Every structure is written in C-alpha cells, then in structure tokens.
Amino acid sequence: MARLVSVEHGLDPVKEHLSNQGYQVVDPDEWVRPVEAVIYRGVPLAASERRGVAENTALVNAAGLTPEEVAMQLENKLG
C-alpha cells in the first residue's frame, strides 16, 4: 500500500512529484484515516490544524524547498 501523505493546498508541484514517487497524496481536508506525513509551508501547524494528525506523524515544511528536496526530507523522516 502506498504511503499516505497530506499536502497543503497550493503545493501542486510537490503533490505531483510525490505522486510520481509512489505516495498517495491527499488534501488536508480530505483524509479519512491517519496520514504518515503532513507537508505544509510557512509556520508550523496550529493545534487546530492538527486534527487527525497522530503524534508520530512526520511534519515537513516545504517553504523554500524544491519538490525533490521535500521528497528527500520525507524519506529521511519516514525511513
């Protein structure tokens, strides 16, 4: 089964790259089961935005990173 990750709206190149790498990508407001990682940009997620995010979910700030760099950070965090 593909790894499920949530990618913030507006990060379309990241979504496309991760999909091409075999990830199942969902929008933050669409997941129905826990995701393994949340990709966002800017400030860390506020508590209200962490609904359904497990304590061990990887968080990757995509601000200033290329889609390839985001994928590398994601791989490092997920192992």
Rank of each mutant, 00 (worst) to 15 (best):
Q21E: 15
A71F: 01
A71H: 08
S19W: 06
A47F: 07
A62W: 00
A2G: 12
Q73W: 02
R41T: 05
V53C: 06
P13K: 08
A2I: 05
S6R: 02
V7M: 04
D29T: 02
E69S: 03
Y40Q: 07
I39G: 02
H17R: 12
L18R: 01
S19R: 12
L18F: 00
P44S: 04
T57D: 01
T57M: 11
P13W: 04
P13L: 12
S19Q: 15
G10S: 08
K15C: 04
R41N: 08
V53Y: 01
E8W: 05
A2C: 15
E36C: 04
L4P: 03
V32D: 10
V60H: 04
H17N: 08
V70Y: 00
T66R: 04
Q24F: 13
Q21G: 10
A62C: 05
V70E: 00
V38C: 07
E55T: 10
K77H: 02
D29I: 00
T66Y: 01
P34V: 01
E69Q: 12
G42N: 11
E49H: 14
A54S: 11
G64F: 07
A46M: 09
A37H: 01
N20I: 10
G42M: 13
A54I: 09
L59F: 14
S6C: 13
V38E: 10
S19D: 10
D27G: 13
G42K: 07
G79Q: 14
P67L: 05
L59N: 03
W31V: 04
E16V: 11
A63S: 09
A37P: 03
V70T: 09
S19T: 12
N76F: 02
G64E: 08
R41L: 12
V70R: 06
E55K: 11
T66G: 05
G52R: 04
Q21R: 15
E8L: 15
Y23V: 03
L4T: 13
V32S: 09
A71R: 08
E75T: 14
E16N: 09
H9E: 06
V25A: 01
G52L: 12
L74E: 01
N61E: 11
V60R: 04
Q73D: 10
N20H: 11
P44W: 12
N76S: 10
M72W: 05
M72L: 11
G64T: 11
A54R: 09
N20S: 13
V70L: 01
I39M: 04
L74Q: 11
T66D: 01
T66Q: 03
Q24T: 15
N56W: 03
K15L: 13
L11Y: 02
V43L: 15
H17S: 06
E16A: 12
G42V: 09
G52S: 07
L4F: 00
V26F: 00
Y40A: 03
D29A: 03
A46I: 07
S19G: 13
P13D: 11
G42D: 08
A71E: 12
E75S: 12
A37E: 02
V35G: 00
V53D: 00
D27V: 02
E75V: 10
R51K: 14
V25L: 07
E36K: 10
K77Y: 01
V26C: 06
G79M: 08
G64I: 15
